[in-house]
Design a protein around this nucleic acid. Structure first.
Lengths: 158, 158, 158, 158
DNA sequence: TTTT
DNA sequence: TTTT
């Protein structure tokens, strides 16, 4: 009936872009979301590692501009898939299907692998527009203003 | 950093109340949340089955008043636990830790097991106040007004 | 950047459907959302009265099926408009622009004006399809199943 | 019943800290939240300017560390107050009462008034602990790690 | 101007 | 393993 999730956290690694056999772009990444407390006596801050999936144009934009370590806001819904693994056991997978992603940090801010970002973008961008279709020409949105970026998907079923 | 979930769906079965060795009440149930679309050519409405966990006073109230089939709103955060199963394989479990639950349907409305509700309440309520501590005397909130109920936990870590 | 609101409350009166000069449907209603506490010594439950605006197809469906007193979930974003009133003073108006509305109560449940619903629907529905265009033929969704209804707008700017 | 808001935007000015006659800290600020589209033919990005109110410890922390222009996430609920103005007319005020605020930018990042931040903090901090009570000694959380800060209120009524 |  |  109603299923809404909003998360802010950091990517645990660079996003992974793939294509379905029909050529639809899918990007997956994991968000580390710090818990609002420390458990037990531990001074260590714990986090939940939450799998995010994006589709189509949003997938391509995420693949182009998100990188490991970036602070990111994600809006979407929880989806629970299940499949039978190779031992015939049913496995349940919970993911957040994002329909709105906000890049809260420009390439310069707090990213440990400086300079890697624009290089990787070119690679991803080139590949995607050749294979997946639907990818408009994009510029690195961080180049001219340093402002966070807003992107949404078109809200189609997936 | 920020982790917020809001769901509306129906319980797939009666909630299960347990107690930790330290006597803390924990209630679990599953919410069936209809997806906003039908996939492929199917006319069948699909749902996500999302596991909900509540603690302490909120756990007792949920065990007392929620029943299979009831339309319910849940507010909380996504938590990902992992443990090693008996084959030494790491298993990941995703749950929503609820801190706010709203009962959107009184016992009369759309429930197939009419009258079962107040009976079960007594059973649960008696058990919980003996074992778990912290349970104040409660009346069936549906008796006198038929209004939805609001309950929240105290927001402590768990 | 990100602006998300989720409310559950009851309509303070029947929704009002209008049309812009260009023929676009707009429906407004107010949601009474009980506060999670009682202020001061008062036993009275207070509420916030929050103005909701819906557009186009969602507006027509809300006008057709929502009625005073109905428990309703609304998802949307906060919008702040301002205009200069007839004394030349700037007035600020805050509304929630809904893109998703869930009817949590069928016509039978908790509505004091029994039977008024289907009558009013016909009136609204007839008027709207004549004037506004874009309104598909609709049946009362409560007739055959008594399930809550899900409706969303098409996510266009407004 | 349920009333949840999540916003990400930038402060339009420095926050304002006041105290009630009873000595309770209240901080107000306005968040500029860019709309997800541009209206009409305009290339200008529009924003909603949303008033935020925080209470007690959260108020003091916001006053200490938030500054004009900072990217900030706010979680809370919509509240509608009304009062009669000096012409005897009823005025309605809509605000977001925040119970959770996340500072998404450290003092260095994207702030146009460089260096102003730590100075102002000291001023506010000193004042608040003298007048308001309840303010624990705090360090500038940005000094040692550059990570965003998480703060919540104690969830009491206000 | 407010709902249950 | 699922609800209406």
């Amino acid at each position: 009936m109603l299923n809404r999730v909003i998360l802010i956290g950091r990517l645990t690694r660079d996003p992974e872009l793939r294509y379905t056999p029909a050529g639809v772009a899918v990007t997956q990444f994991t968000l580390a979301v710090d818990r609002p407390f420390t458990s037990g006596g531990s001074k260590e801050r714990e986090a939940d590692f939450i799998n995010i999936v994006t589709w189509r144009q949003l997938a391509e934009t995420c693949a182009n501009y998100l990188r490991k370590g970036r602070l990111t806001a994600v809006e979407g819904r929880i989806q629970v898939r299940n499949y039978d693994n190779n031992e015939g056991k049913r496995v349940y997978v919970t993911e957040v299907i994002a329909d709105n992603v906000r890049f809260l940090e420009s390439s310069g801010g707090g990213n440990r692998e400086e300079g890697g970002s624009s290089n990787a973008n070119a690679g991803y961008g080139g590949g995607s527009s050749n294979r997946g279709g639907g990818s408009r020409e994009q510029q690195d949105p961080f180049i001219d203003d340093g402002k966070p970026i807003d992107i949404s998907d078109d809200d189609l079923p997936f």
